[in-house]
Design a protein around this nucleic acid. Structure first.
Lengths: 148, 148
DNA sequence: GCTAGATACTTGCGCAAGCAACTAGTTCAG
DNA sequence: CTGAACTAGTTGCTTGCGCAAGTATCTAGC
């Protein structure tokens, strides 16, 4: 029984580590982005994802999956960003149920301004986490992931 | 410049992967625990953390750190669990500002019932994530973390 | 061409989280 | 011994999330 129980415990331990690391990084990013650009972490993630789709559009559903959010949350998220003029909704020509979202110039500018803050905060959060014994191995593993 | 920029991009990519994996696992755990025991993921984490502190007590602050929650959220979280009779508050004798929390028998029973659900869901969520190309390397890395 | 069912998004409602202000208990300088 | 500074926890207010229900559009079978 030992072997199987061990596997369960290893997974649970890994999950706790993952959750802890995620939580601490997210908290720091949240503060930094909020202060510098009045953006939440998910909002930044959306802008970032859209900018990455260079020249291509994303539908609400894709956005929902990319952010691990429900579709209703995605609707409101896009509403907020649209109200601030950071992105626009574009109706699909071919499937009129679908809606594309696209960064506006303002959105691109804001993202450009937020990106260095995001990257630096991420770096320092990872550095801080690396000095926590429980998190250190996961941080190392993160850095060693295959470079796409 | 290439090298430094690469490092930034690798970190950002790693963070997106981490966030995606965390999000998908949390969503599945949330559903499963909600359905089987009417517990949220954080609530389970609290019960689990308390049971792990075998014979030892935790203060609100520790709990807050362990769950990556604010202290106000921790207060209300403990309130919910206390109202359901899953744990009890115990005033510190030495520092009367402090409050210890302890699992009740009911809490232990519920945790015992929820644990297999939690573990199985975690296992299947990891398995599912392993078949997503972007997540696979991180899942592998998780399993290979040092066994404490 | 029309109706039944699926899909894409939006909206109403209740819950939980964070921040800031508050209370109660502790510590320490003078 | 007294009051100022600090710490632990709680409470009021606002905000964002998920679920479930609703609307609009698309697709298939007859």
């Amino acid at each position: 029984m030992g072997i199987k129980d061990d596997a369960v415990e290893v997974r649970a331990q890994g999950w706790r580590t993952l959750a802890a690391l995620h939580g601490s990084i997210e908290a720091e990013l949240e503060k930094a982005l909020q202060a510098s650009s009045d953006l939440s972490v998910v909002e930044y993630a959306v802008l970032d994802a859209l900018s990455r789709q260079d020249g291509w559009h994303m539908r609400m559903q894709q956005l929902a999956r990319a952010t691990a959010l429900s579709s209703s949350a995605t609707t409101r998220l896009v509403n907020r960003l649209e109200d601030r003029g950071l992105l626009t909704r574009i109706l699909c020509a071919d499937d009129r149920r679908g809606i594309y979202t696209e960064l506006t110039m303002t959105g691109q500018k804001l993202l450009e301004a937020a990106k260095p803050v995001h990257d630096e905060t991420l770096a320092s959060a990872l550095e801080a986490a690396e000095s926590v014994p429980e998190l250190e191995p996961l941080v190392r593993a993160l850095g060693a992931l295959q470079r796409v």
